[in-house]
Amino acid sequence: MLELRLVQGSLLKKVLESVKDLVTDANFDCSATGFSLQAMDSSHVALVALLLRSEGFEHYRCDRNLSMGMNLNNMSKMLKCAGNDDIITIKADDGSDTVTFMFESPTQDKIADFEMKLMDIDSEHLGIPEAEYHAIVRMPSAEFARICKDLSSIGDTVVISVTKEGVKFSTRGDIGTANIVCRQNTSVDKPEESTIIEMNEPVSLTFALRYMNSFTKATPLANSVTISLSSELPVVVEYKIAEMGYIRFYLAPKIED
């Protein structure tokens, strides 16, 4: 028996919108820790890892570990039927091949339940060890989204370079080149608008902008985004989900042929 009641149902709606274009089918894993997902895109270039901790739910009952295979497009269709202020409850019985999403309006005058078919998904679970990164950049999520969108109108790849001068996003395409430098800026009144650069070593890596742009669909989940770079690892683009957990996108770099 599984029953997870999320008062801020809009968080789940936003999570689905941020992953459904990257991943088609995925297993949602439910355990005492929380509700989580790990999935790669079909070309195995990017990976998404989601965690919604059990403490973030108003009610969290998960009698035994359960993995539920869902088509994310279908799940998104169902969650779009929930109002932004609705409370969402996810329910499943042991051994059932369906999951139920219950939507309650804040005033309790409308209650809807949507039952969705589960599917068997053979997915590979990767172990992602904690790592030391050469540089970690925290910046406003909207700023990062704007940069990715702007650069993708010029080129297909972005070079992200961190030096003591700041973080530079560069691209080149048929029509020309573009460079955007963001400097550390902690003097603003609002911490979520600051840019903080922690650099242990200068680092420069190249990534496909198509994936970066897809990651920025998570922008509504958090005011800030954290970009962790290491020359030997995929970049991690992390959006914290208020008091509940995170959504992390891992993207493998491109290298010279």
């Binding site: 990767l126 790849t157 190249t206 993207l251 491109k254």
Partner: peptide, 14 residues
């Protein structure tokens, strides 16, 4: 341009 690496080249199945 360049060669796209794969996530599975960095992380192993757990």
């Amino acid at each position: 341009s360049g060669k796209q690496l794969s996530i599975t080249e960095f992380y192993r199945s757990s």
